[in-house]
Design a protein around this nucleic acid. Structure first.
Lengths: 132, 132
DNA sequence: GGGGAAGTTTACGTTAACGTAAAGTATGAA
DNA sequence: TTCATACTTTACGTTAACGTAAACTTCCCC
């Protein structure tokens, strides 16, 4: 009725612009565990979300190990108090890392603006060589 | 009068929490070019800024090649019009990449908040087992 | 003048994250 | 039936970003 319920490995590879090798590698590393129909992998919408998380992590420079942690934060095995507290600790650490990245991005944006301005100035100087 | 004018490789390594091997490696890759006093490397404040840029790039998941580009944006060889225009193009591409990272961070922050909330709920449920 | 600390070069080793190739299976169209 | 396409496993290859070790010089201190 609504969205597609399963995906082939090729479909996901095309959608996320990675190779099937990459997706199988993530499975090797225990990041996704698609169902099987015979030999063939069958991915659920939840698997697709997991892939999205991994690739978003990649764009932020996360290693696969870090992304694995993020994914586990999504499925808290909420029976043990200490595990939950440890998880909150990790969540807090991630928050701080993200805030650092935010500061880095803002600094870089400022510097790109400056660099752009210097380009403009240099171009203007080229157009009007001795216009005082 | 004001700040220190030169730095040894060891000083910078300590300040930025990397090994001297790392700093020499960056030199190998053409990212920094410190002066020499005899054999010994002598780093200027500008070299120090360059290192800062590299490490900030690292925190954002940039490769050294990408950081090299960023550094070159900082020192525009402002004599050629086409080079300047190409540089502005690259600056624009970087801007877009940073904006993507911003969106990724915001999405992740939201999800971390959700995950944290689920932890809280699970913990609360543990404390008050059958409080209706 | 003998350490010790910090610097140097050279070079092989290591890890992550896939790439690439080989060889086989399944399935639908012509 | 044969061909193309998409899937599978297995396994060796590759690149980036350093780590690590060896062997050497310089300088300072007691």
């Amino acid at each position: 009725m609504s969205k597609k319920q399963t995906y082939s490995i090729g479909e996901l590879a095309r959608e996320f612009d990675v190779t099937t090798r990459t997706i199988r590698f993530y499975e090797d590393q225990g990041l996704v565990s698609p169902a099987r129909r015979g030999q063939t992998r069958v991915y659920s919408p939840a698997d697709r979300v997991t892939l999205k998380l991994i690739l978003r992590g990649k764009r932020l420079g996360f290693s696969l190990a870090e992304s694995r942690e993020l994914i586990q934060m999504y499925q808290p095995s909420g029976d043990n108090r200490n595990q939950l507290l440890a998880l909150q600790d990790k969540i807090q650490q991630r928050r701080e890392q993200l805030n650092q990245q935010l500061r880095d991005i803002q600094a870089l944006q400022q510097e790109l603006d400056d660099a752009d301005q210097r380009c403009e100035d240099a171009l203007t100087a080229l157009e009007k060589p001795d216009h005082v």
